[in-house]
Design a protein around this nucleic acid. Structure first.
Length: 816
DNA sequence: GAGTTTGAAACT
DNA sequence: CAGTTTCAAACTC
């Protein structure tokens, strides 16, 4: 397996470096017969993963599998479990950077998948972990083939079956397993893991998305948006959402195209699938079940089936309900009416659409943060236009909720350079999205069912011609604060304008005005981008650049060079800046200590476990405003700060306790105050619990946490430092496919790594690849199980804590 | 929305 | 390394 993985990794690298020659025109094929197996993100090191891998292997060897293969002209590649969630999930965001979301995607993905987008769009995994990469590579290869052959295939593929990938996340273990069997009997078009069929422009392509992972999904979506053709599935999804009153509906809506989706001909199949879904935790079982189901559906229908990742429920998430959702069976109908329209979300209500086919799809993807190129918006065809109504297809969407937290770890295990960063970016995105997601959830979900998905905002706008679904990443903060605001689907990012390819955004005459028009203040902030006028977005002044992401439409920058088309310039500039300051792109806020006093800062003086990398230099803001990077990052000032009159609510330079905890809150604005208190208290509590031995010790939670509960709720914008941190890593990681900048990787480490460790990292003492600690707003995917850095018990505990302590993204519950 | 304030980044 | 300038975000009105 390892060998195989290595080979795959190699292939993947090659693919990444190889420009895709895919012709969009060829995409025109109407339907895609693809079965997408869940992408399993596994941690190679974990038993679960092994289990899954074994299962997959069996699967491949199984008669059913063979049968499926026989159906497709394309030779299925032997799937290899990949730990790299990066590919799809983690990376989804990262690609943005270097694969720039804008440009990178040749294809639009109708599938919200975690797969790594093909070559350009997807960051390449340079990992040393060939193992992880292995699967993805194959997938890429397949996808590539598919793309090349798409035109041909399209014609033939309508009824073809392809299994692109399966992804499963085992939330229970906090591990994510990703396996991409990549057995593509047929690729629809670009049906490669990284590849989204939609690119092919087909309506037929189905997008399966896991609601839970909306956040993650958003990432995909965004990526998908990169391409012009982004209209796809998201819109479709959106179409149904408004209609759905059922809690499930939301998720259902997420599932785009019906025809392509996994369809169950018979209720029995659906049941089987259902059962499978119900067993998210049992990867092996699921896989088997899943496999068993496939044949039937494919065979009977002769149609394309898409399986999108089924995700294991996360421990924190309450997936069960979703999983258990009865699958809707529909009668056969011709979907043909409108290729595009295929997706009808079958909700409990939607049975009317009677189709024989029952589609259940779970899609798990990591949502990309706004920073990542977010094509926050995805257009979806209006149901009217598309004929969802017309299409008789009913689709059932079943989603497993997976913890993104888990995903991250797995990803981390993968190549550090590429994978990690990307993964992080995605993760963040997902987090950002949470808030939005919640809003939807609240609005749409009436049942007590909890959604454990990372929030993503789905914005649905119905225009005469199109419905637009946009996933808008929202800052984690917002999410946290969302309770106040009530969730509003992000308007800002979702604006149609967003659909535009990111690259050309800046070219707009008045980006800023445009942006403002499109974006509402609150929401905008989540996706807020830079507004550079003179720096060309090639200096650290530029938040996007500093974060390691390309500027996208939401940006109001002028003369922007921080775009994929200027990738060389960007990279060069980056290097230049790094040459001056190796840590320039490192997270500004780093974990000061893990309960390890030796770390530079005196814990006593710096209440917050996390500290600003360099410390602030505030003179007039008293470290009570976002001018202060420490405050903005949600961390207390430390001895390294040169601030004057420090009143940082998160911890004063002089060592006084964080305001939030203490009585100084008065100094803070009322709104912020509450948040700060909560955050600080929460952090403290968690810390104490997790690390009884060191009260002052920064816990992973803190590390990651500070970012979350910041007192910025009013604006909802994530703390600058935080954003920077997250994005930077993601961005950098993804900068060059296959050639992750070492620095970037390093930067990642920095996030969670103590200063001293950072130094080591820079020196190369620590292998970035081996371990990455990431702090996510939600803290879900903060650590990779296998992370070396975390080898120390304390650290591990910290990571673990993070996961636990971090409030799961969007609590599925209606009200946070 | 325009203007001011602020402090980091960049420059010297 | 310190001082100054530039820059864009944060903030205010």
């Amino acid at each position: 397996m390892v060998l195989e993985s290595k080979e795959t990794a190699q292939k993947e690298r090659e693919l990444l470096h190889t420009p895709l020659t895919w012709d969009k025109d060829s995409d025109s094929h109407t339907e895609t017969n693809v079965v997408v197996l869940p992408l399993w993100t596994l941690d190679m090191d974990t038993p679960e993963r092994n289990q899954i891998s074994a299962t997959l292997t069996k699967f491949e060897d199984s008669p059913v599998f063979n049968y499926i293969n026989s159906l497709s002209p394309i030779k299925p590649v032997k799937s290899v479990p990949i730990s790299q969630t990066f590919n799809s999930l983690s990376f989804s965001s990262p690609p943005s950077v270097f694969t720039s979301p804008h440009v990178s995607c040749l294809k639009e993905s109708r599938f919200l998948r975690r797969h790594i987008p093909l070559g350009t769009s997807k960051p390449k995994v340079s990992s040393e972990d060939a193992n992880k990469a292995h699967t993805s590579e194959e997938t890429l290869a397949d996808s590539t083939r598919a793309c090349h052959n798409s035109s041909e295939l399209q014609e033939n593929t309508d009824r073809g079956i392809s299994v692109e990938d399966a992804s499963i996340e085992l939330s229970s273990e906090h591990l994510k397993f990703s396996v991409e069997p990549q057995q593509t009997l047929k690729y629809n078009s670009c049906g490669s893991p990284g590849y989204d069929p939609p690119l092919c422009g087909n309506e037929g392509n189905t997008l399966l998305e896991l609601p839970d992972e909306a956040a993650a999904d958003a990432g995909y979506v965004q990526e998908g948006c990169k391409t012009d053709s982004s209209e796809g599935h998201l819109q479709k999804i959106c179409q149904t959402e408004p209609k759905s009153e059922d809690p499930d509906c939301y998720w259902d809506s997420l599932v785009p195209d019906g025809p392509d989706m996994l369809i169950f001909n018979s209720p029995g199949e659906a049941e089987a699938f259902k059962g499978l879904m119900h067993k998210p935790l049992d990867s092996s079982i699921r896989l088997s079940d899943f496999m068993s189901v496939l044949p039937l559906s494919t065979i009977h229908n002769g149609r394309k089936m898409y399986f999108v990742d089924s995700v294991a429920s996360g421990s924190e998430h309450e997936i069960g309900d979703h999983c258990s959702e009865p699958m809707t069976t529909a009668t056969d109908t011709d979907q043909t009416q409108d290729n595009l329209a295929d997706v009808v979300f079958v909700t409990s209500h939607s049975n009317e659409h009677a189709n024989d086919q029952l589609v259940s799809v779970t899609h798990r993807a990591i949502r990309r943060r706004c920073l990542d190129f977010e094509m926050a918006n995805v257009q979806r065809k209006n149901s009217d236009d598309n004929s969802n109504a017309g299409s008789s297809t009913s689709e059932f969407d079943e989603r497993n909720v997976a913890n993104e937290k888990q995903q991250l770890p797995a990803k981390l295990n993968g190549n550090f350079q590429t994978g990690i960063l990307q993964g992080i970016g995605l993760h963040l995105n997902a987090l950002a999205a949470l808030k939005e997601y919640k809003g939807i959830q609240i609005e749409n979900l009436s049942s007590g069912r909890q959604l454990s998905l990372p929030g993503s905002t789905l914005q649905i706008s119905t225009s005469q011609e199109h419905q637009h679904l946009s996933l808008v990443p929202v800052s984690s903060e917002r999410e946290l604060d969302s309770s106040d605001n009530g969730l509003h689907p992000a308007e800002d990012c979702s604006q149609p304008s967003v659909y535009m390819a990111g690259e050309d955004f800046n070219k707009n005459s008045s980006p800023r005005k445009k942006k403002r028009k499109l974006e509402t203040p609150g929401e905008t902030e989540g996706c807020k981008r830079c507004n550079c006028k003179k720096s060309k977005c090639l200096k650290l002044y530029c938040e996007c650049f500093a974060a390691g992401v390309y500027c996208i439409e939401p940006c109001s920058c002028q003369d922007c060079f921080n775009k994929p088309i200027h990738e060389d310039t960007v990279l060069q500039t980056r290097k230049q800046i790094e040459s001056r300051n190796p840590l320039a792109f490192a997270p500004k806020v780093i974990r000061s200590s893990d309960s390890v006093p030796e770390i530079g800062d005196d814990p006593n003086k710096t209440p917050a476990s996390a500290r600003h990398k360099r410390g602030c230099n505030c003179k007039k803001s008293s470290c009570l405003k976002k001018y202060c990077e420490c405050y903005q990052g949600g961390v207390g000032c430390s001895i390294s700060c040169r601030c004057e009159g420090c009143k940082n609510a998160f911890g004063r330079k002089d060592g006084s306790a964080p305001v939030g905890i203490e009585t100084d809150s008065e100094e803070i604005e009322a709104t912020d105050k509450g948040v700060a208190e909560k955050a600080s208290q929460k952090t403290e509590i968690q810390n104490t619990e997790d690390h009884p031995d060191s009260a002052t010790v920064s816990t992973p939670l803190r590390l990651s946490r500070p970012l979350l509960p910041l007192p910025f709720s009013s604006k909802g914008k994530a703390p600058r430092s935080f954003v920077t941190t997250i994005t930077s890593s993601a961005l950098f990681a993804s900068q060059k496919l296959g050639k992750p900048n070492s620095l970037w990787s390093q930067s990642k480490h920095f996030q969670t790594v103590p200063d001293d460790e950072m130094a080591d990292i820079l020196l190369g003492d620590t292998s970035p690849i081996s371990c990455i600690k990431t702090s996510s707003p939600n803290g879900k995917r903060i650590s990779s199980p296998s992370c070396d850095l975390g080898s120390s018990p304390s650290r591990r505990g910290g990571r673990k804590l993070i996961l636990q302590s971090i409030p799961s993204f969007p609590s599925l519950t209606p009200h946070p």
